[in-house]
Nucleic acid binder design. Structure first.
Lengths: 189, 189
DNA sequence: ATTAAACATGTCAATATTTATATGTTTAAC
DNA sequence: GTTAAACATATAAATATTGACATGTTTAAT
């Protein structure tokens, strides 16, 4: 349903941007829940332009480099608002390769499983610590509800809670595997 | 990286199945983290057949209906095992339309936001209650680590924890919006 | 001056996924 | 006997996404 369309419109509604800058946005807070490569962004911008939802100005950077700075049109804002108001049913849960792997993990010996879980745990803890670091800038509390910062803040919070849940789950799995391993080793004695 | 290939191999490694039955599997525990439509499954089975990773027998059901029951080959099992052992880096977090919407939610009035959050909350609570119901069958504790049930159990647990985190997040967002609304109404008085 | 990293824009091919179209059989309920 | 739901297989078209190819400029460091 062309979600990228609305991701781009939403970003341009914050401020005019070039395609490159839109791509950069996916490196920050929003990137935790949406992203696209430049090979998808540029064609999407072209489409939005054709539909009259955005316009662009050429900006010269340095001597000759032409940057296209896109601005959302009134029509674009209207479509964005309409989309934002939509009360759509919860999506089906997203695909997750690691869980798929764990679903079949009974085929792995316990040591391999523990190794895989450990590796994921380290990475998620690292990710969480980065997210927590990012959260430090919000010492002043929740940003005003009518500013862009509000959106930044709540998705960051979601990302943090998400990592916490994943870590909790991995810990549990690790507990099951370690308990089984000890039981096996006890029997072996 | 053809993840569906391994999802199918993993399922066929549990027991021989028809394409239709593979599709059904995505309705249960596994469906929380992987799924595919039959229009993707049948071509995938054909590919696996060409690659010698599965074989099939024709089974007659009723008078004439031919069912193709696929079985994983030794080669298929080897590939599956190799894939299961792979220690791959954590994926980038999956896309989520509702969070994208909330990211731009500063453009919505507080009432609309609360309405959208409320709608999501109800749906997630319902989903959680279904998952908890499913969990009831595991009264006997964690299934043995070398059985299929183990996989069923841990992904179900992950799904439950996930819903709990989402609900926690939505509650927080709702709290922010309601607080802001009260503050606004206080000012209006 | 040189160089590397970041900035900047685009297309193309391949892969993945969804939606629609197509065609039937079997089973269980009425 | 009829009917509806579930079972069963498959292809085609459209959409979404990724990875590779292609080309160049600007900025900051050395």
């Amino acid at each position: 349903m062309r979600t990228l369309k609305f991701a781009v419109l939403g970003l341009l509604n914050r401020r005019p941007m070039t395609g490159y800058e839109i791509g950069k946005e996916f490196d920050y807070e929003l990137g935790q829940f949406w992203n696209a490569k430049h090979s998808q962004i540029y064609p999407e911008l072209k489409k939005l332009l054709d539909e009259g939802l955005v316009v662009f100005d050429i900006e010269i950077s340095g001597d000759i480099l032409e940057k296209k700075r896109y601005t959302i049109t009134e029509k674009g804002q209207l479509e964005l608002l309409k989309w934002l108001h939509k009360d759509e049913p919860v999506e089906k849960t997203p695909k997750d390769i690691f869980r798929l792997r764990m679903y079949f993990s009974n085929n792995l010996d316990l040591e391999s499983r523990i190794h895989l879980l450990e590796s994921q745990l380290i990475q998620h803890k690292k990710r969480l610590s980065i997210l927590n670091k990012t959260m430090e800038q919000y010492q002043g509390g929740v940003p005003p509800h009518d500013t862009d910062r509000f959106g930044d803040f709540i998705v960051l919070e979601s990302a943090i809670l998400r990592e916490e849940y994943v870590i909790k789950w991995i810990d549990k799995c690790m507990g099951y595997c370690k308990a089984a391993l000890e039981k096996e080793q006890g029997k072996a004695k």
